[in-house]
Design a binder for these strands. Sequence first.
DNA 1: TTGTCATAATGTATGACAAATGAAATGCGG
DNA 2: CCGCATTTCATTTGTCATACATTATGACAA
Lengths: 248, 248
Amino acid sequence: MFQTSNALRRSVHSQVTDRVGSSIVRGEIGVGETLPPEMQICEMMDVSRTVVREAIRTLTGKGLIESRPKSGTRVRPPEQWNQLDPDVLRWHLESAEIDRYLAKLFQLRSAVEPAAAALAATHAAEDDIARIRAGCDGMDAAKTNEDFVAADIAFHQAIYFATRNEFFWPIAQMFEITLRQSFTIAATGSHRPRALIEHRAVLDAIVAGDAEAARAATVVLLAHSAHDLVRIRGREFETTSERPGRKR
Amino acid sequence: MFQTSNALRRSVHSQVTDRVGSSIVRGEIGVGETLPPEMQICEMMDVSRTVVREAIRTLTGKGLIESRPKSGTRVRPPEQWNQLDPDVLRWHLESAEIDRYLAKLFQLRSAVEPAAAALAATHAAEDDIARIRAGCDGMDAAKTNEDFVAADIAFHQAIYFATRNEFFWPIAQMFEITLRQSFTIAATGSHRPRALIEHRAVLDAIVAGDAEAARAATVVLLAHSAHDLVRIRGREFETTSERPGRKR
DNA sequence: TTGTCATAATGTATGACAAATGAAATGCGG
DNA sequence: CCGCATTTCATTTGTCATACATTATGACAA
């Protein structure tokens, strides 16, 4: 049984959270400005104050806003948002500048994933390796493009989990959200074989417990991935070391 | 005017959030188990249901729990927690295994910061550089150890902001929380000169717009930092590439 | 400038009802 | 009597409405 419509059937306060959070991330409210008073939001969205307050609590917890009696609820500077929070991420990716954000997320991934692979090589347990291998095999056996991408995601997530370092895990979460929003990252048939070989190289290095080889193999994998992204979505995804000039 | 006592004067729901969240992170409730019903928590903590519900909303927003009518509120698997959320981080660091967690956070930092410095070299604006330089100067001019550490933190945070990539910022937030919990990371006089030189090296590379130099200088800086940490807090902080054996 | 106070916003408490769901009770056919 | 589907029931979260407490802002006055 599926959830018939996507946004249907969800609780009222999560809908309010979405609307308010999205409009903050979108920049409609502006840093330092105050939201309308709770009662006013109630009227605008035709819900009870309970619901509005719980939505505000959620957003406060994600660092987007802070409220004080009398002075109201203000938008905090984006430096203090939990930018890696799944919801915040989603609100970003719903915006018009999705390609910009995907590129930035890829920058973070490029920074973290080689180190994650290296840590996985030294810290992975047997079942971690089994999950990584399952990802590889899944890519191999995939008939549809959808299956291939799913296995690909599983592979990379498994590497983050294999670090046995929970602070790497939020980066893994990032994938699901990112990929769910933009499905065009899929491997388009032709370079599947190469991708497969490169994934196996990472797996082998991890199995061998060779941290440096795992790091190197991941760097290669990501470089090609970036190249594909440039081809598909534009030059925002160019590698970092190619922009010498100072801005502004 | 300061907040006289640390935990005093805080709102009731944030106190409840702390107590419940802390006990979850501490593992007192166990993954998959259900919390007591809301009304029961009300009685236990002698607060209204409003407060308990808002606390639960906050924790739900951080991915710690999920609730459904009748079945109750369950603890989600730690893979889905927002491990980099400041509160979650704090609850971790309040636990007994603080050194373990500090070591893991340092692993993440080691993965990200070299890349952040490289990005800063190519993307930093003038005011970003000014902030980084201010950090250096602050370390130079520091009389007390406290001032030195504060400037040190400011320096590193400025580098993350200079990436102009908001998804690196949560990592920077990490510092404040980490350092506020354990102040022993301070540079103990003797190796201040070396630290200063290494920080300036990073700054210079960023000013020059040389990404690879910035990355390399940061790697050096972190290596020495890790060495100091091992000396002060124990061998948990050893570099990753030195543990060949497979576990379990 | 300083102190006081009115006021408007969030914070907390309470009680009621709606909705969802897991589990027990029930009914039916075998 | 047993197995299985169905219904009913009870428990827990979800939502609403209202009242009052608390706090900080901004105006006013000394």
